[in-house]
Computed example of a mutant assay.
Amino acid sequence: MKTPFILINIFTVTPDNQQRLVDLLTKATKETVKSMDGFITSTLHRSIDGTKVTMYAQWESREKYEDMRRNATASPYLEEALSFAKFEIGAYEIVEIFKKA
């Protein structure tokens, strides 16, 4: 298997909108994203102070991820999130995986 395309997306929100964003991203992932071609896995995180929501995701390739972003069923979720949260996308490649011996 080739190295997956990694995304670490950081959303900044007001504490009163953190759960709203968590719910929206959960719904988007369960209802559309996870069934898209090329999706491998994602993990949703929320900060203790209530101001950040971060999603770590793995895709088979950048092209598969971009296909998802262009998909009409997935885009409304991001548009809604951007109405109350600031979004910073980060694309990464895996350098090393460390595991407990």
Rank of each mutant, 00 (worst) to 15 (best):
M1N: 14
M1E: 14
T3W: 12
T3I: 11
T3Q: 15
T3C: 10
P4V: 02
P4Q: 06
F5M: 00
F5S: 07
L7E: 14
L7D: 01
I10D: 09
I10C: 12
I10P: 01
T12R: 14
V13H: 00
V13C: 01
T14N: 13
T14W: 03
D16F: 15
N17F: 06
Q18N: 10
Q18T: 02
Q19G: 05
R20N: 12
R20L: 03
R20I: 14
L21C: 09
V22P: 07
V22E: 04
D23C: 04
D23Q: 12
L24G: 04
L25Q: 07
T26C: 11
T26V: 07
K27N: 10
K27F: 04
K27S: 08
T29H: 03
E31D: 12
T32N: 10
T32F: 06
V33W: 01
V33Y: 00
V33E: 00
K34Q: 15
K34E: 12
D37V: 08
G38C: 02
F39E: 08
I40L: 13
I40F: 01
T41K: 14
T41I: 07
T43M: 14
T43E: 15
T43W: 09
L44N: 08
H45M: 04
H45T: 06
R46E: 05
R46Q: 13
I48Y: 13
D49V: 09
G50F: 06
G50A: 02
G50C: 10
G50Q: 07
K52N: 02
K52M: 10
K52H: 12
V53Q: 03
V53A: 08
V53R: 00
V53F: 04
T54A: 13
M55V: 15
M55N: 11
Y56W: 05
Y56H: 11
A57G: 10
A57S: 14
A57N: 01
Q58V: 05
Q58G: 03
E60P: 07
R62D: 11
E63S: 08
K64D: 03
D67H: 06
M68A: 11
R69I: 13
N71S: 02
N71W: 06
N71I: 04
A72K: 14
A72V: 10
A72C: 04
T73G: 01
T73E: 12
A74R: 03
A74M: 05
A74Q: 10
A74T: 10
S75G: 06
P76Q: 10
P76C: 08
E79D: 05
E79C: 01
E79A: 09
E80P: 04
E80I: 03
A81P: 03
A81L: 04
S83E: 09
S83N: 07
S83W: 05
F84W: 05
F84G: 06
F84S: 02
A85L: 01
A85W: 03
K86H: 06
F87D: 08
E88P: 05
I89L: 14
G90H: 12
A91R: 07
E93D: 13
E93C: 00
I94S: 07
I94A: 09
V95Y: 10
E96S: 13
E96K: 14
I97N: 06
F98P: 00
K99Y: 00
K100T: 15
K100P: 06
K100C: 02
